[in-house]
Amino acid sequence: MNRRMSWFNVTSLTLGFAFLYLPMLILIIYSFNSSKLVTVWAGFSTKWYGELLHNQQFLDAAWVTLRVGVMSSTAATVLGTMAAYVMVRGGRFFGRTLFSGMIYAPLVMPEVITGLSLLLLFIAIGLDRGIFTIVLAHTTFSMCYVSVVVSSRLMTFDRSLEEAALDLGCSPFDAFKSVTLPIITPAVISGWLLAFTLSLDDLVIASFASGPSSTTLPIKIFSAVRLGVSPEINALSTIMIGIVATGVITTSLISKNAIRRQRQEELEGTKQ
């Protein structure tokens, strides 16, 4: 169906996307401002990027964030995929309602409460706060997101494929490994990416779960930003926006190609 867009629709799209993107665009432009005063344009310069590269505190924080992100999103993907499989294919078992409640509750729980409760747990069991506790905290809330993503894929795929494998003599584990896993892999990958970005992004829970030696980038940015706008933070934000934009656009292009290929295969399949 091809309709001509009315002027109203064109205006609302233009204004809407301008609203979504202008603030970030301004941020990016001003990261190249040579003046220390962020609101006065004094010519193009990349000096804030240079200063950023020499700021050891930021580099350390970035390194902590990256390690926490990789560790927590990997653990969250494993746990979340297991949880999704249990939810969709697990059948009945004792405490199933509680289980599904515990998967959905962290999604709507305010971050301040999640953070507070985890901190109180770490203190109660005498765990020293550091990178390890941030990883535990991030794993817990992002595994719920992963399991939502993966279970929606598990629900839509044709179960008879699994049953066929079982009928042909596969053990349940082999059937999972050679039939189910390849089909849900795209969902598992996007679950990992989601968990990774959630971890990179998180300020509130990390603030509760971190110790003095383990400052993540969002914590660092937050304490700098509280004092007002700084060109260094603008430069850092620009780098982060750039990485995310490249990542999202690449993955969406890859999945677009995958869908096209799948459609083609289906078409060829029906022809035969």
Binding site: L13, F17, L20, Y21, P23, M24, I26, L27, Y30, V38, T39, T197, L200, D201, L203, P218, I221, F222, V225, G228, V229, I233, N234, S237, M240, I241, V244, A245, G247, V248, I249, S252
Partner: peptide
């Protein structure tokens, strides 16, 4: 259009809030 709506969601929440400080100060 969908991607353009979702893209900001993937960028840091903190940065998106911060980007307004320079505008409305």
């Amino acid at each position: 259009l969908m991607m353009l709506v979702i893209l900001p969601f993937w960028t840091s929440f903190l940065i998106r809030v911060y980007s307004w400080v320079g505008i409305i100060a």
